[in-house]
């Protein structure tokens, strides 16, 4: 895959606002037909990196190469973008939004899906968020972009609609479109071919889900006194999470856990299991957090 030219490349991109470094020496490629997930907590620098990739802001250091050149008017015509806020004109109707975007990209007005066709004469501000997302996707795809950039595309969308939007993303990738998607839903991260994890402005890990998790393990604590166990482990400053009634701790030796539980007079079965992507992210984020 790396022999092919990337659709877009961030080359050691750094973006500073005064003394604050929002993105720190991040490199990233998106190739045709692949879905690259950009993961990270709020404030990790994902959206700033996206803005640099789109040419909305320019890197303080490093460079962005889109379709072999610096982002400009011509490169913008080759990408589709769904921003977090959707970028729709709420006081225009669905049909007017589509008509304007099609004219801007000099593309044919797309045929609307039945759900959107049913509300095409309604103001965008009056239709539901799910339909608004669908409309934003339709607009982003209308001019057949080679690269699709999606910033938190399914935020606030109910699960069924989310699945439908992901079907659209996969269809596009199957047709050779490169997709760069930011998300903090771990289930969505699993739909990506490749992931880049950002924390505090840096790209701290990259690869497939399996690559990123690597040998990191978690411990699952099985006890009827799960609430007390959770409280004791949390009080001991360990990275404890609760999954239903199962207490889990990422990247923590089992004997440390056993010792804390023993000290709290809690009997439990502690067993080592593979860490989840979310747990790995927590571990990485803790490691990257400045002291």
């Amino acid at each position: 895959m790396s022999e092919r030219a990337p659709l877009i490349r961030a080359d050691r991109v750094t973006k500073r606002y005064g003394s604050f470094t929002a993105v720190d020496t991040v490199s990233l490629d998106v190739f045709p037909g692949e879905i690259v997930g950009l993961l990270g907590a709020n404030g990790a620098g994902k959206t700033t990196l996206i803005k640099n990739l789109l040419g909305l802001t320019v890197p303080t250091e490093g460079a962005v190469i889109a379709f072999g050149r610096l982002p400009d008017r011509a490169t913008r015509g080759r990408l589709g973008y769904v921003p977090q806020g959707l970028g729709l004109w709420p006081t225009l109707t669905v049909a007017e939004n589509i008509s304007f975007a099609s004219a801007a990209f000099q593309a044919e007005t797309p045929t609307l899906e039945p759900a959107l066709a049913a509300v095409q004469d309604r103001l965008v501000g009056e239709i539901g968020l799910g339909l608004q997302r669908q409309l934003a996707f339709t607009i982003a795809l209308a001019h057949h972009p080679e690269l699709l950039v999606l910033d938190e595309p399914t935020s606030g969308v109910e699960p069924l609609a989310r699945a439908r939007l992901w079907d659209t993303v996969h269809d596009q990738a199957d047709q050779g479109v490169g997709v760069l998607v930011t998300t903090h839903y771990m289930q969505e991260a699993q739909q990506c071919d490749r992931l880049v994890l950002m924390s505090h402005g840096k790209a701290v890990a990259a690869g497939s889900e399996r690559d990123i998790i690597g040998n990191t393990t978690a411990c699952e604590v099985d006890t009827p006194h799960w609430a007390a166990a959770f409280a004791a482990l949390d009080e001991a400053g360990l990275p404890v999470t609760l999954n239903g009634r199962r207490v889990r701790l990422a990247d923590t030796p089992s004997d440390t856990i056993t010792r804390v539980l023993h000290g709290a007079h809690i009997t439990a079965d502690v067993r080592e299991v593979p860490a989840t992507l979310e747990e790995k992210m927590t571990v990485i984020d803790r490691a990257a957090t400045p002291a």
Binding site: L54, L56, R73, R76, G77, P83, G85, L86, G87, Q106
Partner: peptide, 14 residues
């Protein structure tokens, strides 16, 4: 405020 200026900026307008 609506984020549509950003959308205009990524459209192939001068």
């Amino acid at each position: 405020q609506a984020g549509t200026l950003e959308q205009l900026a990524v459209m192939p307008f001068k």
